[in-house]
């Protein structure tokens, strides 16, 4: 294991300068996610235009992996349909947890999260924002937690 596999340049960059950072007021959907182990707290906001995620933002605080993952997620899902976002979520889940997972081309930049797989204690950091986005899109009222 090499730390550079985990903290790739693209991850360090998104941690330092998170994209789409900030809040969106209702009627945007939102949900809060919490990782009690490390104290990461994220809120993900999404605006739907019909079936398309027309805007998505996040705020909160967390480790580099959770912030970078959320930042890259917002770039990846903006402009996609709900079904496409769900499909990306499934692909990311595989990437983070399955050693033999293919890295489909639609992942794009998100493939940089592949190194997280070698650090099992950090998988929840990378997946928190995706769980939270899903909750937001489902209009869930209860905060999600990785525990």
């Amino acid at each position: 294991m090499d730390l550079k596999d985990l903290y790739r340049d693209v991850i360090l960059d998104h941690n330092k300068r998170p994209r789409n950072f900030g809040r969106l007021e209702p009627p945007a959907f939102s949900a809060r996610g919490h990782n009690p182990l490390c104290g990461d707290q994220l809120t993900v906001y999404a605006v739907m235009d019909g079936d398309v995620v027309s805007d998505v933002r996040f705020d909160g605080s967390g480790c580099a992996i959770s912030v970078a993952s959320a930042s890259m997620m917002t770039e990846a899902v903006k402009g996609r349909t709900r079904a496409e976002a769900e499909h990306l979520y499934a692909a990311i889940h595989d990437l983070l947890t399955r050693a033999d997972a293919p890295s489909p081309p639609e992942l794009g930049k998100l493939a940089a999260l592949g190194g997280v797989r070698e650090f099992p204690a950090r998988v929840k950091c990378a997946s928190l924002c995706w769980h939270t986005l899903q909750a937001a899109l489902q209009g869930a009222a209860v905060p999600v937690t990785t525990e």
Binding site: L3, K16, L37, C38, G39, I65, R122
Partner: peptide
């Protein structure tokens, strides 16, 4: 500054140093 404790914990672990991070 600029480094979340959870990241410090992982980086230290790679150096063989076990510490606690979190609340």
């Amino acid at each position: 500054d600029g480094v979340h404790p959870h990241d410090i914990g992982t980086i230290l672990d790679q150096a063989g140093v076990a510490i606690r991070t979190g609340h």
